[in-house]
Structures are given as C-alpha cells and as structure tokens.
C-alpha cells in the first residue's frame, strides 16, 4: 500500500541517471547555438543598457561603477532564470507533453533517477549559459581577476538550487499556464529584492530582513565579490543556504513527482 510516507522516502539513485542527463544534453547539442544566444542576449542587453544608461546617473555603487556592480547580479539572476526555465517548461514537456519520462521508466531507470537527472541537467544548462555570460562580462573587462573563475561552481550550485525549486512547480503544474504564477509571484520579486539591480541596503529594514534569506541573495553575495576580485564574506553560510535549499527542494519535488506519476 502506498502512503504519503512512501512517496517522500529518500531518493534511491543509480548511475543510469547519467543516461537521462545525456539524453537532454544530446538534444541541447542540436540546438546549442540558439539556446546559448537565447540565454545570453537578454541579460547582456539589460546589463549593458542599464549599466551604461543608468550608470551615467549613478556614478558609483558600493565603490565600483554601476555596470561592474550590475555584472555580478546579472550573472546570478540569469543563471536562476536559465535553470528555472529548463526545470519548468522543458521539464514539463518531457514529463507531460512528450511522455519522455514515461518511456524512460519502462527501461531499467527509476523515476528517482529521472528527476535527479533533470535537476543535474537544468543546473548544467544554467551553468553553460552562465559561462557564456561570464565570457561576455570578462570581454568587457568586468571580471579581470582569476578569482572570477571561482564563480563557475557557484553558478552550478545556484543552478541546482533553482532547478530543484522549479521541479516542485513542475510536479504540481496542471499545464504550462501555471508557471506564470511562479514567475510573477516568486521569480520576479526575488530578482528585485536580492540585490541584483541595487544594493539590499536600499530596502526598508523589514523587507531586507526577509530578502536576505532569498536564495538569489546568497548567489549574488557570492558571485558579485568574486567578479570584482574579492573574497566573499560568510562563504560558508551562503553555500550552506544554497545547498540546503537544493536538498530540501529536491526532496519535496521528488516526493510530489512520485505522487503524481507512480499512482
């Protein structure tokens, strides 16, 4: 007899999950160029437009030019967006519309493997997008220090965190329209409150107290100093929050997905 506790049992994974990851990677390879351009163009245009445009009005933020300040925020939030889109829209296509997961489950691969593969894949794709943005940022001279390379594992972790959160939505979604709630009620406010476009110090105290616990705040707190060639403060705390949310959200997403598909 299946009960709620069975659905939320710990994941049982096998190495077959890499075959599922590879499937998604092979599809991406076919569409890599438009995919990268899609992930790159929007954030870069915003960064350059706001950075140079608003930058004329705002000479310096936290001791650096506005565009140098914005670079770190842009990298963090575009990683979040890439991971979220992949886990939501592409994940939902594979789970629901194309029945890809159903086909895979007829092979010796478990649903746990599939959801874990989706998590890793969405983070990988977000990381690929992030590296492309990092390259543009470096080309404009806003990532001069070798410390900037340390953002790559950070954006991978950021990708994992938002992929896991996104998979919760995918597990609950009746249709694609449902994702609009998540974007307008969660992702967009988080982007504005996490210090992407302006320092969190500008927020009212009560809002800031909440905002600093948002996962994107922790990603920004790590990525921005690294791009500026500084060691971030409280590295352990930020990494732990991102990792903790990843684990908790993945566990919840997996439980909800099992409840949805293994009935």
């Amino acid at each position: 007899m299946t009960s709620v506790t069975d659905h939320f049992a710990p994941p049982r994974l096998s190495l077959r999950l890499f075959a599922v990851w590879r499937r998604n990677f092979l599809v991406w390879c076919k569409l890599a160029l438009p995919s990268i351009v899609g992930n790159l163009a929007d954030p870069v245009i915003y960064m350059l437009g706001l950075g140079y445009g608003l930058g004329m009005l705002v000479p310096e933020v936290e001791g650096v030019s506005y565009i140098a300040f914005l670079a770190g925020g842009t990298l963090a939030y575009s990683t979040m967006n890439a991971a979220t889109f992949e886990a939501l829209y592409s994940g939902f296509s594979r789970m629901h519309t194309q029945k890809t997961w159903e086909a895979i489950m007829n092979a010796p691969v478990s649903l746990d493997d599939i959801v874990a593969a989706e998590l890793l894949w969405a983070a990988s794709k977000a990381c690929l997008a992030g590296v492309a943005i990092l390259a543009v940022i470096a080309a404009f001279g806003f990532a001069a220090s070798p410390l900037a390379l340390a953002v790559i594992p950070v954006i991978f972790l950021t990708g994992l965190c938002f992929a896991a959160l996104g998979l919760i939505m995918t597990a609950l979604a009746p249709s694609y329209d449902f994702f609009m709630y998540y974007f307008t009620l969660v992702i967009t406010p988080m982007t504005l409150l996490s210090g992407v476009f302006f320092p969190q110090g500008q927020l009212p105290d009560a809002v800031r107290a909440v905002a600093q616990w948002l996962p994107l705040s922790h990603a920004v707190a790590l990525v921005r100093p690294l791009l500026l060639g500084q060691m971030p403060g409280q590295i352990g705390l930020h990494l732990a929050v991102l990792a903790g949310i990843t684990v908790a959200a993945f566990w919840l997403a997996l439980g909800l997905t099992r409840r949805r598909l293994l009935k």
């Binding site: 075959a19 599809v27 029945k99 890809t100 159903e102 086909a103 007829n106 010796p108 691969v109």
Partner: peptide
C-alpha cells in the same frame, strides 16, 4: 525491466531525435 520490452499506449518517441538516435538513446537507458 532490463529483460522486458514495452510498447506503451501513447507515442513517446523523442521528437528531437532521428529514428536511429531514438534507438541509440533508448539503448543507453
């Protein structure tokens, strides 16, 4: 399941792959 083949009721071929790629990727599972 490693010793069983399944033809499901609804088509679940991978639309992003060719015929040969569908077989190769599935064999990977």
């Amino acid at each position: 399941r490693a010793r069983v083949g399944v033809v499901p009721q609804l088509d679940s071929l991978d639309p992003d792959f060719t015929c040969a790629e569908n077989l190769l990727v599935f064999a990977g599972y």
